[in-house]
Design a protein around this nucleic acid. Structure first.
Lengths: 159, 159
DNA sequence: TTCATTTAGTTCCCTAAAGGAACTGACGAG
DNA sequence: CTCGTCAGTTCCTTTAGGGAACTAAATGAA
């Protein structure tokens, strides 16, 4: 193997990366999210190698992030659609956008704005606690082992 | 070049990926976030190639996500610390965790739990609008061009 | 009928990045 | 003086990404 697969690690970050961590995958997801969902369109918009695009789409379909849907039988033509699983991955994109806007956009300002349906305002995502709805950032939590944790590897000391 | 750099694209997702999109980078960030912040520790915990680890740490320091800090002068020994910029990247990790927990954890349940300081409960992050604080997911927004958008490439038609 | 075009890939070669193991260098302990 | 630790560096092999050309299936125009 040239690249280590992360899927088998007992870590939700690693497992998420296993699905969309490869180069281009998040950008492909973004394209499909905004309606650029056919092979040729994505290839042209991203200027990605056709070979790699084929591989990524195949992987994302296998992992149920996308569905391949025939929009024409004759000639056979396909488009890619987000599944529920894939749509939830797009939340991740919104958080990436927020960080990129804050730390990499510079003088020019954000390249894209997001208007929230509920309030009609241009805004951005914020992380909040699912229980108390107060802000919940990386600094606001303690990390505990969960039920799916790998058993601690204690070297067996006989004696 | 073998791998396309994303940093020059007028897209905050691409720019974020340029910083932490390479294989291992998010896992390195996670390690440092939880206090595994020395070269040897990270190398052993992730079982990553020393060469790649060196490259990633260098890149993350150059991009001001990490700071290299000498915790001993003689012998020279270093540890890596998150900057403010890097700490905000960890928010992204929390969102990756949430998706991984929901879609890849399976029967065993989440490997790690997060207790929110403010309410003391084990919970997870939720995306909400920075303006109205209502839930703000990928399905809840309209996408508009922003000030930093690349000028539309309209082929110049003279005539 | 033939030719061009569109869509969705596939195949091929080349290069660069990842993996892996061994090696270096500075130091400190015994 | 040797051993061990930390923080890398060097070297070689393997494999994934880039890029261009090619295929297949169908449509449409000349």
């Amino acid at each position: 193997m040239q690249r280590t697969r992360f899927g088998d690690l007992a870590c939700s970050i690693a497992r998420t990366l296993d699905v969309i961590g490869e180069p281009w995958s998040p950008l492909i997801l973004r394209d499909i999210y905004v309606g650029i969902n056919r092979f040729e369109q994505i290839q042209q918009e991203l200027d990605i190698s056709r070979k790699v695009l084929t591989e990524r789409l195949k992987w994302l379909v296998e992992n149920e992030v996308l569905q391949r849907h025939a929009y024409s039988e004759r000639p056979p033509r396909y488009e890619y659609r987000l599944t529920a699983k894939g749509l939830e991955l797009c939340d991740l994109l919104l958080v990436m956008v927020r960080w990129g806007d804050r730390w990499t956009a510079g003088e020019a300002g954000p390249p894209v704005l997001y208007r929230h349906h509920a309030c009609g305002q241009v805004s951005h995502v914020e992380l909040r606690c699912s229980v108390c709805a107060e802000p919940m950032r990386a600094t606001d939590v303690d990390v505990l082992p969960g039920p799916g944790a790998a058993p601690a590897v204690t070297p067996a000391r006989t004696g």
